[in-house]
Design a binder for these strands. Structure first.
Lengths: 192, 192
DNA sequence: TTTATAAACCGACCGCCGGTTTGTTTACAT
DNA sequence: ATGTAAACAAACCGGCGGTCGGTTTATAAA
């Protein structure tokens, strides 16, 4: 009937989508494998053939969402301007991007709670830090900035936008203006 | 033999200490109630007489640790100087305080993973924000600063020191200098 | 076309965990 | 002395994630 790869990809997708919906609706712990198997009409064998564990599923979903967010952000930011301007613009655009409610819940609530703060940050960093660090390096080369500890600076900036993202998720108030002022201040303070 | 209150307090403490040690050694999920009951020689009846659930235990421990950290920090900061100076000093002192490894693991790893980011932040905020907001209000009254959104500013500052605390936990590098520069820059940017 | 092999899938089953319930002991007021 | 409620004991439960032996299906070799 269908090729093996087609069957395999289809069930894998079916499982991921069902889990994603259930994680969003009920949270990680409250989502049971049995529920998903009932919904999809699949079996435990199928599930554990495709994934080693329940946590591997949220890990896959979290990684996918992290990459989607950063990709969309860099995609929408202008390629012209100074490195520092583009760095700031990327962060602000990311903050706008993660306003998508489902994305926000996976990135800030479900993923970290299920995987642990450490592991989720590591995954997030793997997706987001390369383009960030690239821009930062350009800014340093161009003499726009001279931070004492690049790693720490990236961490602090990430923490700032993450907090701002969380804040807008809970309060509906727009943190972008404050965020921009803050960035400008930090960049100014770290000029050569 | 012993008074009821003495018996009660003693077992309660015994349970909390045993859970605390196990959470630190094995993490929240990996800590089972049965293990603790074996270690302490107590029973399920005793445990669930004193606590409604396992999560209530980490909640108690997390709240205690949050208060201990902020108390120790404000205690060690000089009462003289301008409100803004004292605010900054309090944050820096807190960053130093949470270097204590056990405290750091409970505050940044175990607590948030078990209680969820939202709930743990709420508990943390209940312990830390009052003195912070008090100082911030003084600074605003004194005309030292005029932030567009006080709530957001407190959130951002908290996020900064939390990230710095996490950073020093993982890298052993001292973020205090960078943190101080950052604070000064933000405060300067938000001057009336 | 037959046949061997491995991927894909099935579902009964297992061990364990957090939490409940029923029963017993201990402190303490009357 | 006695009734009562707090403090503790431990057998028990439903449900969970994960395993395992077996079956079906696709695919490539003979």
């Amino acid at each position: 009937m269908a090729t093996q790869k087609q069957r395999s990809d289809a069930t894998r997708q079916k499982l991921l989508e069902a889990f994603r919906a259930s994680f969003l609706a009920r949270g990680y712990e409250a989502t049971t494998t049995q529920q998903i198997l009932d919904e999809t009409g699949l079996s435990k064998g199928a599930l554990y053939h495709h994934f080693r564990s329940k946590s591997e599923i949220i890990e896959a979903l979290y990684a996918h969402e992290s990459r989607a967010a950063i990709d969309r952000a860099v995609e929408n930011v202008a390629a012209h301007g100074s490195p520092l301007e583009r760095l700031k613009a990327s962060y602000l655009e990311w903050t706008r991007t993660v306003r998508a409610p489902d994305m926000a819940r996976i990135l800030f609530e479900i993923g970290p709670s299920a995987l642990g703060e450490a592991k989720s940050k590591e995954i997030e960093a793997r997706a987001a830090n390369p383009p960030i660090k690239r821009l930062l390096a350009l800014a340093i080369d161009a003499g726009e900035i001279a931070p004492p500890d690049e790693e720490l600076l990236v961490g602090l900036l990430n923490a700032l936008v993450a907090e701002a993202a969380l804040h807008q998720l809970h309060t509906e108030r727009d943190p972008l203006a404050t965020l921009e002022v803050t960035f400008d201040a930090i960049f100014a303070a770290m000029r050569g």
